[in-house]
Design a protein around this nucleic acid. Structure first.
Lengths: 200, 200, 200, 200
DNA sequence: CATGAATGAGTATTCATTCAT
DNA sequence: CATGAATGAATACTCATTCAT
């Protein structure tokens, strides 16, 4: 006997693969069913409709990621290190779970009335991890208080998210995850500008 | 008598509106035709198919934007100022042409085999404006040479692009375009960290 | 322990309700199962398929009605009275068991190959009660021998059956069962025409 | 070039055939399309949905019938003759346009929420022809004023309508249209009972 | 060039029926 | 006997595209 959650999960995993390959709108339910090795109708025992698969998938997977990241951050106190951990973890995900990353990215931009109704609380929870780090850094006097955490969190998320295209549109030399995380963190922590030359 | 390009342009403008409202896949050719006040069949005199409208639209509109930005940047020498101009102009576009912004954003993420074949040279040209600014700054000794322009250009574009959600998901205080551009530029130029306290 | 027939009957009663509410084709097996408080699969232990429920229901319920009417008619000799009893009983059924009446009516008209194969012997048995009354009346010299019992039985059944719409399409004043039965019997016994004026 | 109404009419005629053969619910849109020699999609240029075909068909055909009957009745003054004309015409229709008759009969009984919303004004207009005849007969002193025209109209319609089964379930000797009309009119005009024997 | 009626391939969803437990 | 999860065939409806006018 298979546990209920197994079939739910099998379908979700199949959907990630199929959505990533074909895109949400070009994916057919029967593709997902075949990939999950269940009948088409079975999918409707676990999901209300095609959109529901996408949203459900999104919430589940982001939920798992949030748990992972929070666990990693718990052990660290320095906000600079925390930012580095967050960045590295995010980029690792982008590469390790390319399919999932692509699906999540797509969904964030999907524009249709069904999607717009759905308030993306999980996503907000995720990026609020960044603003929490910034707040902490500001409270500790390490980060510049003039920076708005609300804007910075988006800037940092957007920057990291955009990195995925480095690997897709290969017009630049390849960097490792580690290097990329270093670069992005360096950029965000120290800025583009050279420090003013020390006066002798 | 109406010039050919007028009808082409009318259809493109209509497509921007319709795609932004409904998303590419939920938009019907007949919606675009109605919005453009032409017959359905007329669209096929100017475009090969539905995808072609999107791609054509993309190239045309990005092309115009590139011209505008380059013109603005010509007059300025300071890379910091240039970055500021670029950021402000991008954010202005996000707000002024919300429909276009939404369509371009969506398209960049759309994942399907048709789209993946299409090499997005216009988009690359656009973000290479950023890397050119950084290169210049590094050559002038103003920007840190340790920063990879290839990564930074994506980080900056991603950050700016992500700002659009500030207005969509209103969970944060609203900032003006000017403030947002300042914030982002400040973040990227000076970083999160406080400058080391000046030694007396 | 529940007798077998109890579950069969529970399902039949549930089917009457559901078919009346939604119509045969719009009714789902699971609706009937839920109404009967059994599992979907259980229905297939008592019926071969969906059509079988309808036919079985029809035969059972008409069978019961025939028994009832025949019992009522046994005690009466006058064919006029018999007709009145039949009419009143039929109309009472139309009102008391609205669900059943609606289902029976629908079924009689349902047109599809499956239904047409099924020879409706129970229904014929029911309306033959009418022709028997007419025959008796004719044999007793009370009823006009020029009237064909085969046609009259259908006319009378059709007229009674049609009365159900009196209550559905409320475009006429409401009559009680008693009044309606009186009206219909009067119409069929004496006709529309005034009796010829008695010659003095 | 084919006039619009031609295609609408072609589809309607095809639908009559298909609905009569298979019943509304078992009829597929593609069956109707094939019968009408148009593409499936073409049907949706003329009708909103499957139900709409049925309702539209009903209104159109009943409308035509009403016009015909009213024309026939115009020339006649005697209500007895009028009733006879009505009956004969109705029965002729039942036989000549068996498919249509079957579809109309079905529709009158269809039980589903969509149908129940639809107020069957055309049908009411049709049977009100009967009550108008009765009223006239009563006003002229020919018909018994004790008979309710509202009930009688339904009884007569129901009786006539039911006659169709005479030909379907062939358990009785066959009568011609003329004989059947005579029988039914005789029944309704003079009743079952023998006239009281003339005294003298 | 422009039209818009006609086409017909394509698909999400439903639900009667089965069968392992 | 009873269950209800799983199946997969079946179909109304949509909409990009064509082409006769």
């Amino acid at each position: 006997m298979m546990r209920v959650s197994d079939k739910h999960s099998k379908i979700t995993q199949a959907a990630v693969k199929v959505f990533a390959k074909k895109g949400f709108f070009n994916a057919r339910i029967s593709d997902i069913a075949k990939e999950a090795k269940v009948a088409d109708g079975t999918i409707y025992l676990y999901f209300n409709n095609k959109y529901d698969i996408l949203i459900s998938l999104f919430e589940d997977e982001i939920g798992k990621i949030i748990l992972q990241v929070k666990l990693l951050l718990e052990k660290e106190d320095d906000p600079c290190q925390k930012l580095h951990i967050f960045a590295k973890h995010h980029l690792l995900l982008l590469e390790e779970k390319k399919d999932l990353a692509e699906v999540l990215q797509m969904e964030l931009r999907q524009s249709n009335e069904f999607m717009k109704e759905y308030r993306n609380t999980k996503f907000i929870e995720y990026i609020d991890i960044i603003s929490a780090i910034i707040h902490q850094g500001q409270d500790m006097g390490i980060f510049n208080k003039a920076i708005s955490p609300g804007i910075a969190k988006r800037a940092i998320f957007g920057a990291l998210d955009e990195m995925s295209r480095l690997w897709v549109l290969a017009d630049d030399p390849h960097y490792t995850i580690e290097e990329t995380a270093d670069q992005v963190c360096n950029l965000f922590l120290n800025g583009l500008k050279n420090p003013p030359a020390p006066t002798t």
